[in-house]
Every structure is written in structure tokens, then in C-alpha cells.
Design a protein around this nucleic acid. Structure first.
Lengths: 338, 338
DNA sequence: GTGAAAGCGCTAACAT
DNA sequence: ATGTTAGCGCTTTCAC
């Protein structure tokens, strides 16, 4: 099909080595005239370098394996994009696999990547809590980076969103709009995301001296329904909040529904801010003010971390926490006329 | 790091060939005792076959390249899952790349896959209308399959959803609920999806002798807002429809909003059915009856088509149209008490 | 049932 | 500036 170096060499009347030097562009000097001849010959013969052979010889594939925990996750796409874009810039291809939340699949994928001799592995959000040790040993000595999971032993190989900072931005925004009594709806309590966002809330409450009432903090489970129930509880307080921060957009949706079902208006009677910037955040009525995850940026940061390992740059950069961004829409009331 | 066949051979006191025969499991006879010894040695030494070397030698990589037009598309995830699952079953790994709707990226990816000598390429929904010829020539003689794009010249290498059938299911469902006057909101007119779904609508209208009024067919652009406007137009007819089928879920969302803003109720005053089964279809109020895309099944079908090409099975199966599924929720009224 | 050896396509010393 | 050659790790004839 596509010719080999040898065939081009014959056609050009030079040795394989010369052709290789031209094609691989390794900087070895070649007479200009020869170079041109080889190049145009290669083009006209439709030459495509055999990366399998090159990989075997050079003992590096210029290929990074990416394991995505759940490709349909709302954040995966942007992160993968950030990864691919920045890796391509550095001359690496990416091979992506969807683990579909199955630990077994993660292991299979790591094994496959090892066998294919990828130069590094990136795990995106991988659901590996109970398997940390196994994963870490499967990854062995190969460079790797974890996105969205922090393991203390290898903290400098981890990238995660700045959830605490994000929550602080949300609460600060509400405080700036004049709210002193802000409800908080927590996610599943043992998720790091939930803990960090809660910490951010508490920080601002104390710094800005907002109402620090334990009843303002309600427990949810990340789902719409739990946001609904939590809001009903908040509305039944003797002194209900004037604003509610739900620690994800789904629960914020539940907040909006509950407020509306109580005959009240968002944002007039209740300001609402969510977290994640899911796609429905600008379809919902009213559209949802929220914190955008730094997905693309995490992909970029992961690339930096990984390539540093590959290059064996000795100083481990700590790029762990990437800040998100406040997206102001209608539900917080900041856009209201007047 | 991981040993080579040669090292295992030395350790076992046999030749490389014997070790290869055991490891590659190619069926060549080896004495049981020898086999056991090699196997346990390989395990204890942590041997991982070098797929790069094997690929070079065998001239096949057992690797399928998948180009996804937009990984964040609501349908991509399930299709990719179907692909990966069925390909793995057949001993193939997949290497996925996100094209992010950029034609250039598609070409780069094809080139990269060619250089990496993948055994076949699958394009998922690739945005290649103006580039068909270029893509087809880039794919050259390598086996490939297109998902969600049909090119007549290579129809037997294409897999697509049965949109016409899906629309028929939706309209039939509404007809069975007693509706005779059903509005239809079309998508962008030159998309095949729109044409096929419209054809399905017209089929059932004529077969079941429903009201065949051109005013019942409104033009939309796939977006929420266009569904809203189209519905306003339908409501202003002298004789408005009692049901509306929007040819995607986003427009169906616009339908619901428009009906509600007109002071009417869904489904009591207007039955609504969408298409796609997007994730918000069961969050929206009322939840949306819709047609589920056969995404996973398309992935499976694509695998069959591709492996057939690889095996050079001469008879080209036509698996082009995969049927979807009706998901009954609240918006069509079928679930109403009584 | 096992071993010796060639070679997949390429790169990188080492010559010249 | 170019050619010769060894070898990356594996599979597969061809011997025995």
C-alpha cells in the first residue's frame, strides 16, 4: 500500500539512511538537492511513515493513553478537548477509552496501554477509590496523571477543580448582592466535591459575617429531588434564607421548582446559584447563575504535568487546583432591571 | 522494565520460538510441562507482550480508530460504548479521538490512524458533507464505517438511525391516543434527520387518514426558541392541533413553554412528543415522551460492518437503518389517570 | 515438540 | 553528506 523507506530509497537512488534522515527530520545534514528529491518522491508515492516500526525502534510511541471514567459526563468532553489540544501541540497523539465507571475496565485499559507501550497515561475522574493501590501499582513506573482525583502520595501528579474557591465565588457574589442569609444545599457528604464546596461556603459566611445558622445548611444527594426537598425545609424555617446556593446544578433545578411551587418567584423572592454550568443551566427558566468547571484548563494542566514527568523534569510542579468561573444569569437576580 | 521473550526463554532454558508459541497462543503444539513452566515464569516476571513489536511483525495492530465528531454530543457516549464493547469482544482495542466538529481535525486523525496502521476506522457522525471525496480518498483502501452519515456510494459501510420509522412510532402513538390533528415541527430542512422524520410523519398522516393540513407543519431550526415560535403559530390557527410532535427534544421544550405561556396545560390541552431522549427529557415538567436514539445498537452494528470488511466477507450486509424506541412519559397524556 | 534464523520498517551509531 | 549495518521484540517458516 504505502511505500517503505527502502522503496523510496531505491526510487531516489540513495540509501535508506538518507531517506530516513529526511523523513524523520532529525536535523542530520542532507544536501538540499537530495532532500527535495526525496521529499517530492515521498509525496508522489503517497508515503506515510510507519509509526509502529518507528515506535519499536525508538522505544517511544508518542502516544498518550487517556482513560475517561464516563465519557457522557458533562465535564469529560471539555477536559478531553483540553488534553488533546495541548498534547497534539507537543507532538503526542491520544488514545482514549471510556471506562464506563467499571473498575475492571480501568485495569484492562491500563494493561492494554502498557502493552501498546504508550508514553504516559491520564486517568480522568476515574472511579478508583477502593482500588487506589491496585491502580497505582498497575501504572507502575509509567508517567501518569490523575484528573479530578487527588491521592496524597502522588499529589503532584493530580489535577482537580478549585471547588472551595468556586463556592467562595458564588457566596461572595450573593453577599455582594446584599444577601445576608444564604441557604446551602450540600451534595453527598463523603464526596470531596461536597466537602470542598461546603468549606468555601463556610469561609465566606465567616469572613463576611453572614448569618451563620446551622439550619441554613441542608443535606442533598446531588439529585433534583433532593434539592426540592431541601428547599422546602429551608422555606419552612422561621426565618427562611433570601438566597440559596445549591452545590450542583441539578439540585439548583430542584430549588427553582420548589420555590415556584411555593408560589414564589426566582430571583425576586429567592436568589439561586448552582454549580457546574450544565447545559440546561441556560435553558431553564429562569436561567441559572452557576460556577463553570475549569474542565478545559484541567486538561491543559494535566498535559503539563505529564510531559514534565516524561521529560523527567525533576521539580514536581503543584498544579493541583484549577479555579473555575462565575457565570451570571437570571436566577441570582444580578441582571434584574433596576 | 517488563521482560522480553528472549529473557523468558533464557530463564526457562528454551528457545524464543517456544516462548512465543506459548505466549501468543497460536495453537502450535507445545509440551504441557514446558507450557506450564513458561506461563508461570512469564507471570512471575511480570511479562506484558509488546504489541508494537507484534504489530510490526504481523502487519496488523488489532486496533480500531474511532473519530467522534463531538464527544459531548448527547448520543456519542452510548454509541462509543456500543463500539468499544463489541470490538473488545472480538479482540480489538479502540483508539478514540474527538474531532470537535473541525474537518481539519478529522483529516489529521485519519492520517494519524493510517500512520499508526490501525486495522480499521470508524467515523461517528462526522461533519464531512463538503469533504466527502477528500475523506473517502484519505480512507483509501482501509476498512471503514460511517455512523450517522450515509454516503450512497458506500451505503453498505454506513449505519444510521431509523428516523423515519421513529417519527412513525411517535405519530402512531398520538393517533392511538385519539389525536386526529397533529402539528409537526421540522428541524433544519436540509438535514437528513429532518427529512426522514418529516417523511415518517407524512406516512402515518396519510395511512391513518389524519388531518392533512399543510399549516400543521411548521419549520424550526432544532433550537428551543424555534419550537416556541412554531407553537405560537400553531396555536393561532383557526383550528389548532391537539397534539404536537417536535422533531427533537429541544424544540419540544419550546413547545411546552409556549403552551404554558398561552395559559394551557401539557398534556391536558396539548399532547407533546419529542425526539432524541435527551437527558433533560425526564427532568422537564411535564416529563417528555420522546423517541430514544438507537445509539448503543448503532455502535454494535458498525462493529459488525467493519469486521466484515476486515475479514473480507464478500457479502456486504446492509445494516443501514437501526430502529429507535418510543419512551412514554407524561407529555403525551398516555399516563394520565382515567 | 523444539530450535535457528529471517525479517516486519525504521533509526542511529559508526564508517567513509 | 552519504552509506553500511545492527537491532528494537516479535512471529513464522523451515529444519530436525
Amino acid at each position: 500500500m504505502t511505500p517503505t523507506l527502502a522503496e523510496i530509497a531505491t526510487a531516489a537512488g540513495v540509501s535508506i539512511a538518507t531517506v530516513s534522515r529526511v523523513i524523520s527530520g532529525n536535523g542530520h545534514p542532507v544536501k538540499d538537492e537530495t532532500r527535495e528529491r526525496i521529499l517530492s518522491l515521498a509525496a508522489s508515492m503517497g508515503y506515510e511513515p510507519n509509526l509502529i516500526a518507528r515506535g519499536l525502534r525508538k522505544q517511544q510511541t508518542c502516544m498518550i493513553g487517556v482513560i475517561v471514567d464516563r465519557i457522557s459526563s458533562p465535564f469529560a468532553a471539555a477536559t478531553v478537548q483540553g488534553l488533546q489540544d495541548s498534547l497534539k501541540l507537543e507532538g503526542y497523539s491520544t488514545s482514549m477509552v471510556n471506562a464506563n465507571r467499571e473498575a475492571d475496565t480501568v485495569f484492562e485499559a491500563i494493561k492494554d496501554f502498557n502493552r501498546r507501550r504508550v508514553d504516559g497515561i491520564i486517568l480522568l475522574n476515574s472511579w478508583l477509590h477502593p482500588y487506589n493501590d491496585m491502580v497505582l501499582s498497575a501504572l507502575e513506573r509509567k508517567p501518569f496523571v490523575l484528573i479530578n482525583r487527588i491521592i496524597e502520595e502522588v499529589r503532584y501528579k493530580c489535577v482537580a477543580p478549585g471547588d472551595q474557591l468556586g463556592a467562595q465565588m458564588a457566596i461572595t457574589h450573593l453577599a455582594n448582592l446584599g444577601h445576608r442569609r444564604i441557604g446551602y444545599i450540600n451534595g453527598v457528604a463523603d464526596w470531596l466535591e461536597a466537602q470542598n464546596r461546603l468549606a468555601g461556603y463556610k469561609n465566606v459566611v465567616s469572613e463576611r459575617r453572614l448569618d451563620d445558622d446551622p439550619a441554613l445548611v441542608q443535606q442533598g444527594d446531588w439529585g433534583v429531588e433532593s434539592g426540592y426537598e431541601a428547599t422546602r425545609a429551608l422555606l419552612e424555617l422561621d426565618s427562611p434564607p433570601t438566597a440559596i446556593f445549591a452545590s450542583n446544578d441539578l439540585m439548583a433545578l430542584g430549588v427553582i421548582y420548589a420555590v415556584q411551587d411555593a408560589g414564589l418567584q426566582v430571583p425576586e423572592d429567592m436568589a439561586v446559584v448552582g454549580y457546574d454550568d450544565r447545559d440546561f443551566a441556560h435553558w431553564v427558566r429562569p436561567s441559572l447563575t452557576t460556577i463553570c468547571m475549569p474542565s478545559y484548563e484541567m486538561g491543559q494542566a494535566a498535559t503539563t504535568l505529564l510531559l514534565n514527568q516524561i521529560a523527567e523534569n525533576s521539580d514536581p510542579i503543584d498544579a493541583t487546583h484549577i479555579p473555575g468561573q462565575l457565570i451570571v444569569r437570571q436566577s441570582c437576580g444580578a441582571l434584574m432591571a433596576g
